[in-house]
Design a protein around this nucleic acid. Structure first.
Lengths: 144, 144
DNA sequence: AGCTAATAATTAGTATGACAATTAAAAAAT
DNA sequence: ATTTTTTAATTGTCATACTAATTATTAGCT
């Protein structure tokens, strides 16, 4: 294997991730889900009536805090989440689902699982395990 | 495997791709490469004195045409590429490397290969093959 | 030839993503 | 107790991504 190959692997990874996201996003749009993939990721993290600080949400979802601020802004504007003052720490908000947010989560959850599944068709159980293992190794290789 | 798992695989894929890209971008920045990953991808595609239409470049690099327009804009502003009228088709430009672009490519190529390699440390030859196979399957599953 | 459909590139709008800088508040240090 | 350092969230800037719409040109149809 020549060193050059690594550049093309990086490209392959990027391209595939973009397609997986893009496919789901298209289905979200055509189903009039009225949210984006990344917004969905937040809603899901807030299930079970969780009250999470934005910092915690950022870590859970692997996003940085500016990105999270903007996603929460959008979700609040849509009435799906609410910011509440943190009782102990006045720098923080806790974010949680509104009733509409909970309803949205319930309504979309099965549909989204089904959409997500499409990408993984024709893969064996072993493939999943392999992929998970490899992606995690890569992630750890770049751990700061 | 429950259906729900697919959602988390999608997340894992997205997160890993972002980290791989982010790591390289940081190294680009600290090395004062003065280009982004995606700009690099274009430069590389234009090697060997190729004259490519933007449409062709878009397909090669897996980007859509608006995105490509903007990346080319930036590369031209940096003096690394040039747009030339297509001789047969006045709707098209052909893009090619300037001398500065060729120099940049030569200068950065080995450094970038070395940076890219970091993500793939500790992976076996088999792992690469597996990963490539799996990613391609996923990509094809979502082919329009 | 003349009309219609398809294509290449661009522009505009919105969302995400990385980074730097700012603000306000909390925690740590002396 | 006051000062210093950290921390949570926000704002700003730039680049990438996707969609839709626009413009100019070419290709296809009759």
């Amino acid at each position: 294997m020549t060193i050059k190959k690594f550049d093309s692997y990086s490209y392959l990874l990027d391209r595939t991730a973009r397609r997986v996201k893009g496919y789901a996003q298209q289905r979200f749009a055509s189903g009039n889900f009225d949210i984006t993939i990344d917004q969905w990721l937040i809603l899901k993290s807030l299930d079970d009536d969780r009250y999470l600080k934005q910092k915690e949400l950022a870590e859970l979802t692997g996003k940085d805090t500016p990105t999270l601020t903007r996603i929460i802004d959008l979700l609040c504007k849509k009435g799906l989440t609410e910011r509440v003052m943190h009782k102990d720490d006045r720098r923080s908000f806790t974010v949680h689902l509104t009733e509409a947010g909970k309803a949205k989560l319930l309504e979309l959850s099965p549909k989204i699982s089904e959409i997500r599944m499409k990408a993984w068709e024709n893969l064996t159980e072993q493939d999943y395990e392999q992929l998970k293992m490899i992606l995690n190794k890569i992630y750890q290789n770049l751990e700061s």
